[in-house]
């Protein structure tokens, strides 16, 4: 098994992983380490989250930011992974590209839901409202709808190559929403504050709040990477099952024809 992984990494090419056996071997080797790193990052992140002093404006609710903001980052990050995968489908036609996109969609949708839910719960005490149709919230809701639409699209089209191409096109069109989410606070008048971490001139957030936020961000990233790899493995197995079922159906049909001829 290790020899397979070493061979894949020696080649240093993504094309080496197009072989399902190589990819599955790579997942088997990497996921336990990633899972362990995720647990460590979450432990440190949660400790820091509950050790910070209260914010002078948000009070104790500032702690919601440490799970809300990383969820939003990962919702958009998962979509960017799907954009790269969509390019892989349309430009390089890599067999794992559609697998990667399909596996990322439900995880991205879950992070988007978390971003909306935790944001809404934070908004009630801070803004006095669960929901506002402002540019940031609305564009983020659109992201959830895009995720759900893509999942439905993959399920609706049987033919794998066609569903992969169609989903890739929809993913690329939907990518227009990502800069809208990011810059909506600058382009429109919204309730949201402008960016305070991902800025060209550096973060404006005090280190006491920035540190737990970044550690929780790392924990969410590691969680996504672990789950994405495992979900990709599930998708590869699903395709192997489908191939096996086709073989079984073909064998049954051949047998039926042979029996019919005998009679």
């Amino acid at each position: 098994m290790n020899a397979i992984v070493q061979k894949a990494s020696r080649k240093g090419r993504l094309s080496a992983l197009a072989n399902p056996a190589r990819f599955l071997a790579l997942v088997r080797v990497t996921w336990p380490g990633l899972a362990l790193a995720t647990i460590v990052a979450f432990t440190i992140g949660l400790y820091l989250t509950f050790s910070v002093p209260d914010d002078y404006q948000q009070g104790r609710t500032v702690r919601i930011m440490f799970i809300h903001v990383p969820a939003v980052w990962m919702a958009m990050g998962a979509y960017m992974v799907m954009v790269s995968a969509a390019l892989g489908v349309l430009v390089w036609r890599h067999p794992l590209a559609d697998v990667a996109a399909r596996a990322a969609a439900p995880i991205g949708a879950a992070f988007t839901f978390l971003g909306l839910a935790t944001g809404s719960i934070w908004g009630r005490p801070m803004w006095g409202s669960w929901w506002e149709w402002d540019a940031r919230l609305t564009s983020f809701l659109v992201l959830l709808i895009i995720y759900l639409g893509l999942i439905a699209l993959w399920r609706a089209i049987e033919e794998p190559a066609r569903s992969a191409r169609m989903a890739a096109i929809v993913i690329l069109v939907g990518a227009l929403n990502i800069p809208i989410i990011k810059f909506s606070v600058d382009w429109f008048t919204t309730l949201h504050q402008s960016a305070s971490v991902l800025r060209l001139d550096g973060p404006t957030m005090p280190p006491v709040f920035l540190t737990p936020l970044l550690v929780m961000g790392l924990a969410y990233l590691l969680f996504f990477l672990t789950l994405h790899l495992l979900a990709m493995r599930n998708e590869v197995i699903r395709r192997q099952i489908r191939t096996g079922q086709r073989k079984a159906a073909q064998a049954a049909r051949t047998e039926q024809i042979a029996r019919g001829k005998k009679q």
């Binding site: 919601i64 799970i67 809300h68 995880i107 879950a110 978390l114 935790t118 969680f223």
Partner: peptide
């Protein structure tokens, strides 16, 4: 005063993350 908001946001997050693990 806002304990319920903090607890529910952490509870929802934990539930969703655990549900993802179970799904996979």
């Amino acid at each position: 005063q806002y304990g319920g908001f903090i607890a529910s946001s952490f509870a929802i997050s934990a539930t969703v993350l655990i549900a993802l693990i179970l799904w996979v």
